[in-house]
């Protein structure tokens, strides 16, 4: 089944430049229905208010980190099934393991390019 390119996507990052980069790169690969949040708690509020088909989040945020956001999402029965991609500069093995244990769907290390984003989206959502 083809991926719905109108899939609502929530991107979470405390750097406005990263939000714009991810938004632009998503647009380049065909996804234009994008919402933004600049911290974990406002992301949770948006997730509980509207329906999203994918979450793309930074890890290194305060006060709620991307990992904590992931755990909150996975602990909420209504949100638990949403695919969650972590985009982060945290590139130690222990980070990847912790994210995997928390239920991350895929993991992108910064800096990244459009091709990497596209391939991770395909692995999470299916070919498009």
């Amino acid at each position: 089944m083809a991926v719905d390119k109108n899939l609502p996507i929530l991107i979470v990052d405390d750097y406005k430049t990263m939000l714009r980069i991810v938004r632009n790169l998503l647009k380049q690969v065909g996804f234009d229905n994008v919402e933004e949040a600049m911290d974990g708690s406002s992301a949770l509020t948006k997730l509980r208010e509207s329906r999203f088909g994918l979450i793309i989040s930074d890890w290194n945020m305060e006060p709620m980190t991307g990992l904590q956001l992931l755990r909150e999402v996975r602990a909420d029965a209504k949100l638990a099934a949403i695919p969650f991609i972590m985009i982060t500069a945290e590139s130690k093995t222990e980070n990847v393991i912790a994210a995997k244990e928390a239920g991350v769907s895929n993991y992108i290390v910064k800096p990244f390019n459009a091709e990497t984003l596209k391939s991770k989206l395909q692995s999470v959502l299916g070919a498009f």
Partner: peptide, 20 residues
């Protein structure tokens, strides 16, 4: 031209990394 714009966006990752 659009591909090159994408390259510029990718390169701007530096700002986030620098900030961190």
């Amino acid at each position: 031209l659009t591909e090159q714009i994408t390259r510029i966006f990718e390169a701007c990752n530096f700002q986030d990394i620098t900030g961190q």
